[in-house]
Amino acid sequence: MSPEAFYPVGTPGQPWGEAERAQWRARQQRLRRFDDDVLPRIDALSSRFERVQYGALDYAGDRYPLLALRSQPWDPALPAALVTGGVHGYETSGVMGALEFLEQRAADYAGRINLLVIPCVNPWGYERINRWNFDAIDPNRNFRADGPARESTAVVELVAPLKSQFVLHIDLHETTDSDESEFRPAVAARDGKPFEPGLIPDGFYLVDDTENPQPAFQQAVIREVEQVTHIAPPDAQGEIIGSKVVSHGVIEYPLVALGLCAGITGARFTTTTEVYPDSPRATPQQCNDAQVAAVTAALDHALGQVAGG
């Protein structure tokens, strides 16, 4: 790289074209298998939940079914909750946490709330341990019906007929050291912008909706997760990843305006989890457990509010 370059693809100050995207794609190697890690567990769960294929991807001959699991039977008289994982394919505990929730805890909510769970929104990214999809697009900025990422538009289409039923959507993510070493530099290079270094918070945090803040809900989730892993403190500016900390372990984003996954249902209760898997204080299993704890705490709070009016 030249001295002013900060990423090995593209020319500083110039947005990528097709040639740069192809060069970036050639750097991505399949490091794990969706059909080995995820599909068998979804198939095993299909005896207890309805297996829904809501689309398919074909990226240069690599084919992936887009799969969800939903309550069986689905009772229109009950409220509904959406759980999503793997929007960014490299965020392992999001995928594994969604699966472990289904395997270990979902039965506790049968007959109380309808569940729709998408364990791995971005299977191409999962296999390559990458944030983006095949087209160097971040699915989590493109959850809209006319968006460029098929991973995202397919979820929007799946959810659309059920939107009025959802009281909860929890989207399971991670913030990793590779955000700073790989993915933020890649975004800056792709968009022809300078890279501005930041800080990775040490611990778990949540992202609430600026347009629909639910502080009591967020703190109910934080309290449960804190039993499993540590919560990220604010930095010297009182921020986490550049956003003001509004309460213990919570920041806010305008979910719909940014095209984020957690904004697609219009549910009363929405949150994005952010696990920190690179901490020396957290094991991979703790990260999965933190995601499961977040889902169950979110469900318990939402159900308590629905039951209480």
Rank of each mutant, 00 (worst) to 15 (best):
F143C: 02
W124A: 00
R141V: 04
T153D: 11
R128Y: 01
N142P: 06
R144Y: 14
D138T: 04
G125E: 02
R131I: 03
P148L: 11
R141K: 10
P119V: 04
R150Q: 13
G147K: 10
I129G: 08
D138K: 00
N130M: 13
N130K: 09
F134D: 12
R144V: 05
V121R: 04
P148E: 12
R150T: 09
P139F: 04
R128V: 01
D146W: 12
D135C: 11
N142W: 11
N122R: 03
F143S: 02
W124E: 01
P119R: 06
A145S: 14
R131T: 03
A149V: 13
T153Y: 08
P148T: 03
W124K: 00
D146N: 14
C120F: 09
E151Y: 04
C120N: 10
V121P: 03
R131L: 07
A149N: 13
G125L: 02
N133T: 10
P123R: 05
S152G: 04
F134N: 07
C120L: 09
N130L: 06
R141G: 07
Y126N: 00
R144W: 14
E127S: 01
F134Y: 15
I137L: 15
S152K: 02
E151H: 05
E127I: 04
E127W: 03
G147M: 13
P123D: 06
I137F: 14
I129R: 15
E151Q: 12
D146C: 12
E127Q: 03
P139A: 02
D135Y: 15
W124D: 00
P119G: 06
P119W: 05
N122M: 06
N140F: 05
R131M: 03
R131P: 01
A136G: 11
N140R: 10
W124H: 00
E127H: 03
V121K: 08
N142V: 07
W132Y: 15
A145Y: 13
P139I: 06
N142I: 04
